[in-house]
């Protein structure tokens, strides 16, 4: 389980996170939603150790991650699918996948990975920049999967994906959670969120303002949307 407690921090001139506490349980999809600019991406970057300043506690199955550099956090079991894909444009699909693989993936051997994301199989020798936006997004997800993460952080993975592929993505995330991965999903796409999430958290002004099960969210959806999500 990934556990954050009282996370504050942000950028040199802007404090963004004002004390975020949340748990992402193993075997569950925890969704984090919120208006543009509330600090969702900043939180993900903080968990990966990519913020210039940050305080608070981050632990993975009880072990503190806070003092570790980014690469050590990844090795400890964090997989990261960043906002905007950030694939390596000049590396081939296979090379993109290899960057995170210090050894071959236990859970995602090639056959299984390509069965899940067949488009990538046909593009395996192509450079990252030659892929379509959707293919790049799938590559970013695949690249995190093959590191066999215990926690998977996804920052708006449905961005730029066709509706069919979003459904596919929902299935993948569900499957990952069922296999015991802790999935922390930042999304704007409420349909995807409601389709896969076990818990739904809302972030506003640098804090978590709502944290409950998906059915509870649906029951109060209209009010929550009006209060925290509409512009």
């Amino acid at each position: 389980m990934l556990s954050l407690s009282e996370i504050t921090g942000g950028y040199a001139k802007a404090q963004v996170l004002e004390g975020v506490s949340l748990d992402a349980a193993a075997g569950a999809v925890t969704a984090l939603i919120g208006r543009n600019g509330v600090g969702k991406t900043t939180l993900m970057r903080g968990v990966m150790g990519l913020l210039p300043r940050m305080q608070g506690r981050i632990s993975l199955d009880g072990a503190a991650l806070g003092g570790l550099p980014t690469h050590a956090r990844a090795r400890a079991g964090l997989g990261y699918v960043p906002e905007g894909r950030q694939i390596f444009p000049e590396l081939t699909v296979m090379e993109n996948l290899a960057v995170g693989q210090r050894q071959p993936s236990r859970l995602w051997p090639e056959a299984r990975l390509f069965a899940l994301l067949p488009n990538l199989r046909d593009r395996r020798a192509n450079a990252g920049r030659a892929l379509s936006g959707g293919e790049q997004q799938m590559l970013a997800i695949a690249r995190a999967l093959v590191t066999d993460p215990r926690v998977l952080l996804l920052d708006e993975p449905s961005q730029g994906l066709a509706p069919m592929v979003v459904q596919e993505l929902a299935r993948v995330l569900r499957q990952l959670a069922d296999e015991g991965v802790a999935v922390l999903l930042v999304e704007q796409n409420l349909r995807l969120t409601e389709a896969v999430a076990d818990r739904i958290l809302i972030m506003a002004r640098g804090r978590i303002v709502h944290d409950d099960t998906a059915p509870a969210f649906r029951a109060a959806e209209d009010e929550l949307r009006h209060r925290w999500l509409s512009m």
């Binding site: 990519l50 550099p69 690469h71 090795r75």
Partner: peptide, 12 residues
């Protein structure tokens, strides 16, 4: 090409 993601994938 992208030092941040190289590190985020577990490389020093």
């Amino acid at each position: 090409q992208n030092p941040t993601m190289t590190a985020a994938l577990g490389n020093d």
